[in-house]
Design a protein around this nucleic acid. Sequence first.
RNA 1: AGGGCUAUCGCCAAGCGGUAAGGCAACGGCUUUUGAUGCCGUCAUGCGCAGGUUCAAAUCCUGCUAGCCCUGCCA
Length: 555
Amino acid sequence: MSQVVVVDKPTNFIRNIIDKDLSQQLHNTIKTRFPPEPNGYLHIGHAKSICLNFGLAEDYDGKCNLRFDDTNPTKEDIEFVGSIKKDISWLGFGWAGESNFSSNYFAKFYAYAIELIEKGLAFVDFSSADEIKQLRGNLTESGKNSPYRDTSVEENLEHFKKMSSGEYKEGQCVLRAKINMSSSFMCMRDPAMYRIKFAHHHQTGDDWCIYPMYDFAHCLSDAIENITHSLCTLEFQDNRRLYDWLLEHIDEFNKPNRPHQYEFSRLNLAYTVMSKRKLQQLVEDDLVSGWDDPRMPTISGMRRRGYTPRSIRNFAERIGISKVDSMTEMSVLEASVRDDLNLIAPRTMAVIEPIKVIIENYMNAGVEKIQAPKHSQDETMGKREIHFSSELYIDKADFIETAPNKKWKRLAIGKEVRLRNSYVIKAERFDIDKNNEITTIYCSYDLATLGKNPSDGRRVNGVIHFVEATTAVNAQFNLYDRLFNIENPIKAENFAEVINPDSLVVKNGFVEPSMQNAVAEQAYQFEREGYFCRDNKSKELVFNKTIALRDTWSK
RNA sequence: AGGGCUAUCGCCAAGCGGUAAGGCAACGGCUUUUGAUGCCGUCAUGCGCAGGUUCAAAUCCUGCUAGCCCUGCCA
């Protein structure tokens, strides 16, 4: 008899809708889609949407399409198609079949536009953009009909064909849906469906000089792909009326199981920014090193920082889906990252701010080799070799001349401390230079304490990490912290002023020899310091700090 | 009287008329050769406010208040 393991997925309003649709047999299965515009890099906010759309498809045994929403050739670029695919795959999701492009459907869109014109539901407007704006009215006053609104079907057909064959100039006219100029939904006041752009498109080349607007293309693309649940963010709530209107007025799609749009709130993360425009500004103003700067909330930045796909997926699950405007605390993301890394990261030692230690009573010549576990709670990870000798490095922060109180668990003169995976040592004295900086600490060690506590029963209550000096390997450490000093940076007038000046601190120190060939993007824990990964762009040994260990003491 | 949404613990978030899940954070304690991890415990007599319906209301009704979104030939 097999046991069914039920993993509870947190529920949300979209799952409730799907459950209802499925139980009423409106659909046999679900189909979602992730529809990025190829005009920038994906960020953690996109990851939320990706996890939602692909996750739903997985859980309901449905499908999720990847569709590039490429209806504006002047703003989009093929370069982003590759990076977007890479990021989605890296997160661990696969899309149904080949990736799609809205531009695949341009010919169909054209036919649907003709259908609308023939039904008297669309017209070609030769008013200028400014005139259209004037006639649109405003939030409290209804708009006025365009003088071209009553053009005959035949003439509209002719004009639209001329639009598409390049006989009109850019901006000379536009195809508009004929809906209602006094609607309280601004998007229903005869919205533009097609505009003229003599622009080269990365997919369709120079085949078209008219391009559909988002509102026209999106719902139709969904319908063509048999999407059942079209999920987007809150700012499209009004647009839903247009989405529904269009599908209800195209014969082929006016049926109960047509796609329906549902909106959820976008992710806001404290102390960072999420908008493409703002991220771009950070890059362009050289406030960060690029889109994949480990401080960026981009998928590529987080990857370089050492975040794992699973940690991001766990994060997405933890924050849930709702319609509330919210600001999620960084701690939720950080906890998700730590939870995953704690399980998978081999332990190793690095000294980030080295200070020399001499073991004066260590009589062995050369270097002693010790086998240390890669993970004290997971033996299956095996062991690595560490070294010990009369010359070591410990971290500056782990020594103080006199312990400030009884709770001090590090080294101090006359005090004993355990060197991680090694011996117990006691600090005897130290040298300082002319700036009063400690240069060397002289210690004694207890040779009977390797792998065991002192036999006389005395308690050693502190453990610090170290590396053996003669075999230590030089490494650079990039220590990252939050990019901004304020919770919601978009409210700042000047971006540069609210950047955290300590968001990147570079240190040079040592790692144990086993880290010589550390793999890029692979998580390691430098014990007592935090999780790090080798930088994926540097040839030298450079480690990016992913996240510090939880610290309940320094406060 | 423009319209569309939203309001449950510091931050997320379940709940869908039967008497407030969970996570993060915080705070205690135990274990520990990582001040980590793990484990145990504490943390909303109350669900934006005010009324009403009901034996029973976070859930239904009425009226307020606050916040977000909408006037691109952007998405």
